[in-house]
Design a protein around this nucleic acid. Structure first.
Length: 417
RNA sequence: GGAAGGUUGGCAGAGUGGUCUAAUGCGCCGCACUCGAAAUGCGGUUGGGGAGCAAUCCCCUCGGAGGUUCAAAUCCUCCACCUUCCGCCA
């Protein structure tokens, strides 16, 4: 959520920020609720004060005072109920106000208005007609969607043979890059309590349920390790000297992708389960912009290392979602479809997540404040596999393996069968 | 799955109904001493919220939610988590 003071002191800024992101929220209504809420708080507190006065005065209390205190308590109960209703209403609406986009984020309504910053590498050229990853993985016996569908449903799969080894190698490779960059490596839980999977991480526009929930429990399968890594320091006050904290979290990611059928819903591109190495950082507020650049730089380093062609896309205000103040995507060139496909995403969520999860830091003078949190994909393995298969395929149908992965694998080529 | 014991401020840890406005220690901040530092001494230091220009005042906060009482860290109920032991298991 945003800072409530920002809303009170500068409602017009908030209204503009909401409009820039394309959200429809009645800010004035929220302000009115806040006023009402504060008035009720004053009334409740005044009642409590007078009752405290009676019992905190000394030792035994007279029967008359006891009656009086009992009477006050009745009134408090009624007022508190009233306050609770207003408070819930207020909080529900207030927490929907999105994190304002930075000033330097481009205006725009949706994906179409995102801005290509640069292309790195050249679109792979072939002397033959390149196949898409579906055909390649079929021919090379790498992915079994049919059995995946039988056992778990459509858009589940078995990763087989060299592709399975490739998955491990890609994770290992990206972790080595991140360890060298000072990241602490964690395998996180693949499940989290609702407090963390709601509102923390991956939330699509719209209200479709995105998370798989565990029956009769408060747990859900995480859609990204961003959720488990953001929860890692929830309700903690971190020493300013210990910042920034940089984590590389490995997890499986589970997404229901409800209603997301379309052109690219076949194959590995959009699946219900995949492995991902996620970067997640906690920084002091003044350091988050630099860290965001650092995360983008690392994403590029990883993809450059793999020899893949990509472009960097700056996400416009209307496509940021509620949490991010700024966001960059990397899109890899996918010859099989002849288009760019999103492979990473890095966001600066400033103090928006930290306020929800109550993550603070303490300065040397004892003052505390909310940290900034940032996240970025190091490698979404399934999509990286698509990019490798489609870009490294050869005319005879075999696929070469990027050199940087050789040291993790016992093969340098995925041979034809 | 069974049994027992726990959860107190940044950390450790005392506190079993009434100045708890939470002892004490560590850490941290300020001041004094010092050329400077260490040591020492003195003072400060949970977090959140509300009123006020401010000084300041008030409310809440001892794992969470309810309850008993004029009064709850302390008593009762439920829940979560942690530790140890037994069983089972990779």
């Amino acid at each position: 959520m945003i800072d409530i003071k920002l809303l009170r002191d500068n409602p017009n800024f908030v209204k503009e920020a909401v409009a820039r992101k394309g959200y429809r929220i009645d800010v004035d209504e929220i302000l009115k609720l806040d006023e009402r809420r504060r008035k009720l708080i004053q009334e409740v507190e005044e009642l409590r004060r007078s009752s405290n006065e009676i019992s905190a005065s000394g030792q035994e209390t007279s029967p008359a005072d006891r009656d009086k205190a009992r009477g006050i308590k009745e009134k408090v109960k009624i007022k508190e109920k009233e306050l609770e209703v207003v408070e819930d209403d207020f909080l529900g609406k207030f927490s929907q106000i999105p994190n304002p986009a930075f000033d330097d984020v481009a205006e725009g309504k949706n994906e179409a208005d995102n801005k290509e910053l640069r292309i790195v590498g050249k679109k792979t050229e072939f002397s033959f007609k390149p196949k898409d990853h579906l055909e390649l993985s079929e021919n090379l016996n790498l992915i079994d969607f049919k059995s995946g569908a039988k056992v778990a449903g459509s858009q589940f799969y078995y990763l087989k043979n060299e592709a399975a080894m490739l998955e491990l190698a890609l994770a290992h490779y990206s972790l080595d890059v991140l360890r060298e960059a000072g990241f602490e490596v964690l395998f996180t839980p693949d499940l989290a309590k609702s407090r963390f999977y709601l509102g923390t991480g991956y939330l699509p526009k719209g209200d479709e349920a995105q998370t798989y929930e565990i029956k009769d429990s408060d747990l859900g399968l995480i859609a990204t390790a961003e959720i488990s890594l953001a929860g890692y320091h929830a309700d903690e006050i971190l020493d300013a000297k210990a910042l920034p904290k940089k984590y590389a979290g490995v997890s499986h990611c589970f997404r229901r992708e409800a209603g997301a059928y379309g052109k690219y819903s076949k194959g590995l591109y959009r699946v219900h389960q995949f492995t991902k190495v996620e970067m997640f950082c906690y920084t002091p507020p003044e350091a988050s912009k630099n860290m965001h650049n650092e995360l983008l730089r690392l994403e590029e380093k990883i993809f450059q290392g793999l020899g893949l062609t990509y472009r960097v896309v700056a996400i416009c205000a209307g496509d940021l979602g509620s949490q991010a103040a700024a966001k960059y995507d990397l899109e890899a060139w996918l010859p099989g479809r002849g288009e760019w496909g999103e492979v990473t995403s890095t966001s600066n969520t400033t103090d928006y997540q930290a306020r929800n999860l109550n993550v603070k830091y303490r300065l040397a003078d004892g003052k505390t404040g909310f940290v900034h949190t940032l996240n970025g994909t190091a490698i979404a393995v399934s999509r990286a596999i698509i990019a490798i298969l489609e870009n490294y395929q050869k005319e005879d149908g075999s696929v070469a393996v990027p050199e940087v992965l050789h040291k993790y694998l016992s093969f340098k080529i995925i041979p034809t069968r």
